[in-house]
Simulated scan of single mutants.
Amino acid sequence: MSRTGSRTTGRPTLAEVARLSGVSPITASRALRGVATVAPELAEKVLAAAATLGYIANPAARALASARSHSVVVLIPSLSNQLFIDTLEAIHAVMRPRGLEVLIGNYHYDVDEEENLIRNYLAYQPCGVLLTGFDRTEGSRHLLAASRVPCVHMMELGEQADAVSVGFSQQQAGYAAARHLIERGRRRLAFIAAQLDPRVMQRAAGFRQALLEAGLQAPELELLAAQPSSIGLGGELFSRLLAQAPEVDGVFFCNDDLAQGAVLQALRQGIAVPQRVAMVGFNDLPGSAHMVPPLTSIRTPRAAVGRAAAQALLAMLDGKRVSATRQDLGFELMVREST
């Protein structure tokens, strides 16, 4: 079979794919993007034609033709945290049936790196952006505002009337953890945290508020480490805490991996949990329910956040009014044997 391809590149074109499969270029484009409204038999013909010709879509050309690409940018601070993996999976599940590509930017909790990603991705003219939280540079805010690209914020709840956000109250989650330990009769309560991003510090604020109300505030019982959260670090910080304050009888960890490390360290040191010290984690990550003892943790709606944020963005792209600009999906305290 002969083919002409693009005059400038010699590569197969969408028009050739459409002609070979017997459909219109618009139908061919939709089929290649996986749009669910294309009949399965037509989609199969288009995919077979594309495979025969060796056709690869040109997203830059598509963006120029429509003034917008068929891409959605998702900016997250970490790809090593299960929290964001679950969120990304949910976003993909919503976007894929609409034929939208998901471009992932990992800024490693660095707001300057996030600004560079925003600048680079906006050059591709995405049709929408999903952001994590509200902490970013003034430059990032200006870029997003000037682009007029629809944005949805995840994991936190915004106070601005014009900002669409999907998440839960990080501060209330910290408050709930402290109240649970207090109700269990614990009186020397510590907070152990790492990474120290804005959401961690919001949990810290809620924890402190509950202790203040109960007359149990103890700033000296806070261990805040700037390095990334991990199981190993959790064990180290727990040992350091008990060396400094052996009277501690309850600990709230800003993330489950820290708490899991502390449970393992307590087992190594022969420290009884919860008899000697009770422990509460955050996020209810895989494995927490299988620790010895099973870890009490605050379960966060990470997949639900991704799903609802993606659906809100699709509504905005369709020109619909978002019914709730501030969707609070809540959290759940999973009480287990560590408390």
Results as ranks from 00 to 15, higher is better:
160 Q>W: 12
35 V>W: 08
55 Y>C: 01
28 A>I: 02
24 S>V: 14
18 A>W: 05
251 V>A: 00
179 R>S: 07
278 A>I: 03
275 Q>C: 12
234 G>D: 02
130 L>W: 14
58 N>Q: 08
300 T>C: 10
82 Q>S: 14
316 M>Y: 07
277 V>I: 13
110 D>F: 06
216 L>T: 00
280 V>F: 01
302 R>G: 02
92 H>K: 07
272 A>K: 14
321 R>C: 04
87 T>C: 14
266 A>V: 04
213 E>L: 10
28 A>Y: 01
108 H>L: 07
303 A>T: 06
230 S>D: 04
310 A>P: 03
146 A>H: 01
299 R>H: 02
248 V>P: 01
301 P>L: 03
276 R>L: 12
292 V>W: 12
203 R>C: 03
268 R>E: 15
195 Q>H: 08
175 Y>L: 15
33 R>E: 04
54 G>H: 12
288 S>T: 06
244 Q>I: 03
83 L>W: 11
43 A>L: 04
48 A>G: 10
31 A>Y: 06
307 R>H: 05
304 A>Y: 10
265 Q>T: 07
325 T>H: 12
321 R>T: 15
106 N>C: 15
240 R>C: 14
312 A>D: 01
179 R>F: 13
326 R>M: 05
316 M>P: 14
34 G>F: 05
331 F>D: 00
136 R>Y: 03
14 L>M: 11
22 G>I: 12
120 N>E: 14
335 V>H: 00
30 R>S: 08
77 P>V: 00
231 I>N: 08
5 G>N: 11
57 A>E: 06
51 A>Y: 13
273 V>G: 09
273 V>S: 03
284 D>E: 01
130 L>E: 09
8 T>F: 07
326 R>Y: 13
193 A>V: 10
168 F>T: 10
263 V>N: 12
229 S>K: 06
300 T>R: 10
152 V>S: 06
308 A>F: 01
123 A>R: 15
133 G>L: 05
248 V>H: 02
146 A>K: 14
337 E>P: 09
287 G>C: 02
119 R>L: 09
333 L>N: 10
181 L>D: 06
105 G>Y: 15
44 E>K: 13
169 S>P: 00
80 S>G: 13
254 C>N: 13
209 Q>M: 14
219 P>G: 12
256 D>K: 04
125 Q>I: 02
94 V>W: 02
219 P>I: 11
275 Q>S: 13
90 A>N: 08
331 F>E: 02
201 M>A: 03
96 R>C: 00
218 A>V: 04
146 A>M: 06
335 V>M: 02
128 G>I: 11
307 R>K: 09
299 R>M: 00
64 L>K: 07
214 A>S: 07
245 A>H: 15
145 A>F: 01
192 I>E: 11
